[in-house]
């Protein structure tokens, strides 16, 4: 139970339409597994992972990820998480045009509720599926990301392709923002540096008023 072994804790949220593979991406990240039949997420699920960012001085980052439900009925619950996040994975399914189109709505929602400095990466998931099934090309995804100032990657929770990379890319961007002082000293609610746990310290214990003889 050693003390913190990380330099930063970053809070991430994962959003996007139902069924695009948000939970699958998180499970792939944390457990290196893929579930063929995951249950739809109810509300929000938590998962976490330590990653190292070589480009940023080998800083160790603890990702705390909140995987949200895509289903409309949970919208009001999941929105509560936007505000406190430092990073967002906005996920669509490359084989579902509607999920890509809805990404606009999701982004608008995130922008309304989240911290203005939030880093958002657009993730086209299920890149493992055959070209015939594709409904959104890589170029199109990339173009829209550029227009909106989002990072972009195509990934597959099934093969594991680019999954860690997606999180790393977003984390790196946040670290750069930190380094540049965008969040003047950790002001983003989603970023915490490794000095004492939530600024909690405990005074040295009070004397017990007891002695121990025979020792």
């Amino acid at each position: 139970m050693a003390g913190p072994s990380w330099n930063y804790v970053l809070k991430f949220i994962i959003t996007g339409d139902a069924g695009v593979g948000k939970s699958s991406l998180l499970v792939r990240l944390t457990d290196q597994r893929f579930l063929a039949n995951p249950d739809p997420t109810l509300g929000v699920e938590f998962g976490s992972k330590l990653i190292t960012i070589p480009e940023e001085d080998n800083k160790v980052v603890k990702l705390q990820c909140w995987d949200t439900a895509g289903t409309e009925s949970f919208r009001s619950i999941t929105r509560s998480y936007y505000r406190g996040a430092a990073g967002c994975l906005l996920v669509y399914d490359v084989t579902s045009r509607p999920s890509f189109e809805h990404a606009r709505t999701w982004l608008a929602d995130v922008r309304t509720h989240a911290d203005p400095h939030l880093t958002c990466i657009l993730v086209g998931n299920k890149s493992d599926l055959s070209l015939e099934r594709r409904q959104v090309s890589t170029e199109e995804g990339e173009r829209w990301a550029q227009e909106e100032g989002l990072l972009f990657v195509e990934a597959s929770a099934k093969s594991g392709d680019n999954v860690e990379a997606a999180f790393e890319k977003a984390a790196r961007d946040i670290l750069i923002k930190i380094r540049r002082g965008v969040f003047d000293d950790d002001r983003s609610p989603g970023v915490k540096s490794s000095n004492p746990a939530g600024a909690i310290t405990l005074d040295q214990r009070k004397a017990t008023g007891q002695t121990c003889c025979g020792s």
């Binding site: 913190p4 603890k62 746990a197």
Partner: peptide, 13 residues
């Protein structure tokens, strides 16, 4: 979910 979150913090210490 909260239990796994809690484990990931410094609070167990």
């Amino acid at each position: 979910s909260n239990q796994s979150y809690f484990r990931e913090t410094n609070l167990p210490t």
